[in-house]
Design a protein around this nucleic acid. Sequence first.
DNA 1: AAAACGGGGTA
DNA 2: TACCCAGTTTT
Length: 381
Amino acid sequence: MTLPVKARNPDQDDRYDIAGRLLSWYDVNHRDLPWRVPPHELARGVQPDPYRVWLSEIMLQQTTVEAVKAYFRIFIERWPTVEALAAAPSDDVMKAWAGLGYYSRARNLKACAQIVARAGGQFPDTEPELRALPGIGPYTAAAIAAIAFNRPAVVVDGNIERVTTRLYSLATPLPQAKPEIREIVERLVPGERPGDFAQAMMDLGATICTPKRPRCMLCPLREDCSALANGDPALYPVRKPKPERPMRRGAAFVAVRDDGAILLRKRTESGLLGGMSEVPTTGWTARKDGETGTVAAPFAADWQHMGRISHVFTHFGLELEVYRAGSGDEAPHGHFWSAPDDIAGEALPTVMKKAIEAAIPGATKKKGVPKKRHLHTMEKP
DNA sequence: AAAACGGGGTA
DNA sequence: TACCCAGTTTT
């Protein structure tokens, strides 16, 4: 078949149609997020703060929006500028990051802030320069370039992979399909509002084009979607099957001083839960159920078995038998006592909070300021 | 190219 | 439960 001389250019038309429809949808249906400048404010001339964009993007790496919101607010209130974050003790940053996971992000966050602050406090606005900063990979460099600086970067995250593979019925399994997806997105990025386009694609993926049971009837791109026309969008993207998770087991030891302080130690800076705090544990090996005991306790004491906790990491499951004992004041080398009021604020990953909770229920919960009971009497300022 | 790296939201 | 999320770094 021959094409007319003035053939329709599918690339140009797709760019106009799809991006235009998507942006119109986004103008009305965008999510309100603490780090986002909504389209009507951008139209008024409000400029995004690259520091906030960067902080949100780091937090959002492999982390859901819902989980990030509270952490983002706390970080911004405590460290409103990149200079403030750069000046913060690393320990404070790790404590504030506790519970968010992927703790190398927190170390890289601090390192990146120091580099940017030392370079004058301005984030670079090009992908190669952004890519050179610690913790910023291909996705985040493109996202910051697009969202903070409105550059026509090719932003591809998990949402956009899903939207794109459905739009074009891409059967190539991920991650093999990544180059193809990049090429498609590159053709879709509009010259105007590329930052909003990236965010609109992600909002679409998060609210309409969801992994399961996508709401295709509400989709602004339903007329463009190959998967919807030809079959079932939920079948995309195709992924390689994941290897099953092995199980590791061990024991955790919660030593309690008379005043309620708990014995902690700090993990090495690199590796699993790097730089975070923990209660003493045995090694986590593939030993059999029930094989752990108190033989590997940090010191001899009357260790009481308090139960077992389970935790799931990316690449293995973990079961810890939890033991508790009273203790004198002496802390073994490399260990320290954390007072009851300090426990909640320690750099404890979730698995360690679980272990402590198993031994001392409530110990890791924040002690709220006791509510005044007699509010019927007004106090003077 | 593959593995390491957390935790939680969602159906 | 099982899946997967605004991925990056290391091996």
